[in-house]
């Protein structure tokens, strides 16, 4: 079921990952094509977050390979992977609550990069510029999500790895976040985990579905949207359009 022939920026081949004694990923393979948005779908507990964490080196894979832009990053330490040009937006946002918005962004900005990223962030999220001096812990969930995304955007990254940006946000905020991501779509490559099918549909070009730690579907996002049987089988009842 692998896409063949297409060049890929990120390629996972038969990935196996353990958390403690549990065998979470039991063969995940996927390709992320440059310039496109690949959505990783699957039930709760299917291994989506673990897949992203393995890509980042935060939960290192025990078997299989991960290549980024042709280089093997399977055993690399997280900060080295990130410095290759990978931006990460974690599942629970994980902003530094005791630091100000500005400090969060400055921490993320890698020394030597230009100020373009900061300008982009301020254009996308004008709210954050106004709140630069505010402690990130005092922001609303939606604002924290913007900080988390902004942290990944201040650097000229070639791949953004984003884990469920809509989680726990009110619908109106979800559409704001969707808009922001839509604005950068096309300028950068994105690997996105998203349970909210509407958002996935709005942003996704390609889709990968994993179930019980294995890749079970690879194809265009549009096909997933159209195929209700596929949705019922792998995405469960919790998903709504």
């Amino acid at each position: 079921m692998r896409q063949s022939g297409a060049e890929s920026l990120l390629r996972l081949t038969d990935l196996h990952t353990f958390i403690g004694e549990s065998h979470i990923l039991q063969g995940v393979s996927l390709d992320v094509a440059p310039g496109r948005v690949t959505v990783l779908l699957g039930r709760n507990g299917a291994g989506k977050t673990t897949t992203l964490r393995s890509v980042l080196g935060l939960t290192p894979a025990a078997g299989g390979t991960i290549t980024f832009d042709g280089g093997d990053i399977t055993r690399e330490r997280p900060h080295r992977i990130v410095r290759r040009g990978v931006g990460y937006v974690p599942e629970d946002r994980d902003v530094f609550g005791g630091l100000t918005v500005d400090e969060n962004l400055r921490l993320a900005q890698r020394p030597g990069t230009t100020a373009d990223g900061m300008a982009l962030v301020h254009r996308l999220f004008p709210d954050l510029e106004r709140r630069a001096g505010q402690r990130a812990g005092s922001l609303s969930g939606g604002q924290q999500q913007m900080v988390a995304i902004a942290r990944a955007l201040v650097n000229p990254n070639r791949l953004l790895v984003i884990d469920e940006p809509s989680k726990g946000l009110a619908p109106v905020v979800v559409s704001q976040v969707t808009e922001a991501l839509a604005a950068i779509k096309g300028t950068t490559t994105i690997l996105l985990v998203e349970q909210n099918l509407a958002m996935a549909q709005a942003l996704g070009d390609d889709a990968v579905i994993i179930d019980n730690g294995r890749t079970v579907y690879t194809g265009p996002m549009a096909d997933v949207t159209a195929d209700e049987q596929l949705q019922a089988r792998y995405l469960g009842a919790g998903h709504s359009g």
Partner: peptide, 20 residues
Amino acid sequence: LIVRAGAENREMVQALGIDV
């Protein structure tokens, strides 16, 4: 900044490309 952030969440500091 790294020290203060690291005290809150070491892993996230790494995930920002910083050698903790």
